[in-house]
């Protein structure tokens, strides 16, 4: 009789321990914190696929936890949701790292573009300084000077966007600046040719 009672008590204790497993609150909070970091790193913009995968995993983990929360205490099991929270956290961490790398890649790309635009501007300024100054080309040179000034204004605008972290807008503007600078260089060549023709 005592043997049966003991077995029953041990079984009940085991059920109690297993059934009343602890909800993975800490894992959920940790995943939420890492998600915020990913948002701050603009992962949603720079690595949307990685970010969405992490978010889907987190949402599924929350649903799995919710399912267990609503069960009778003795039947709860948070093992699966805990694993999912840990996976979501890892995915958000990866998305954050990837976003930072992607942002840096875009930044370097636009910075290179800015350097190219600056080099083009400098060479246009040098070409303009060396352009023939005699009568007959002066009006052309004055007009080219105006064009070069407007390109400088455009460059400053693109640079401001770049400094403000608006890389995509800055990229488009630097492209326009380089296009117009090339036009200025062509104008200088044409003015030189015109003068040589005189």
């Amino acid at each position: 009789m005592f043997k049966y009672v003991s077995i029953l008590l041990v079984t009940a204790a085991l059920l109690f321990v297993v059934g009343c497993s602890k909800a993975p609150e800490a894992d959920m909070q940790a995943a939420d914190v890492v998600m915020q970091a990913a948002m701050t790193a603009e992962a949603e913009q720079y690595v949307p696929q990685s970010y969405n995968m992490a978010l889907d995993t987190l949402n599924a983990a929350k649903a799995a936890k919710e399912e267990q929360d609503s069960k009778f205490a003795l039947f709860r099991s948070y093992g699966k949701s805990k694993e999912m929270f840990i996976a979501a956290k890892a995915l958000f961490e990866k998305a954050t790292t990837d976003a930072q790398a992607e942002k840096e890649r875009v930044r370097v790309q636009v910075m290179d573009m800015a350097a190219n635009a600056q080099a083009m501007l400098d060479s246009a300024a040098v070409a303009l300084a060396k352009a023939p100054r005699g009568k007959g080309s002066k009006a052309d040179i004055e007009l080219i000077k105006n064009d070069l000034e407007s390109v400088k204004i455009g460059f400053a605008e693109a640079k401001a966007d770049f400094d403000g972290g608006k890389f995509l807008a800055a990229k488009a503007k630097f492209e326009a600046v380089m296009g117009k600078t090339q036009g200025v260089i062509n104008e200088i060549e044409a003015a030189k040719a015109k003068k040589a023709g005189n």
């Binding site: 064009d147 407007s150 204004i153 455009g154 492209e175 326009a176 296009g179």
Partner: peptide, 12 residues
């Protein structure tokens, strides 16, 4: 010329 620069930027 400044307006022309703005036009080129908007196109881009």
């Amino acid at each position: 010329s400044t307006a022309d620069m703005a036009l080129k930027m908007s196109q881009s």
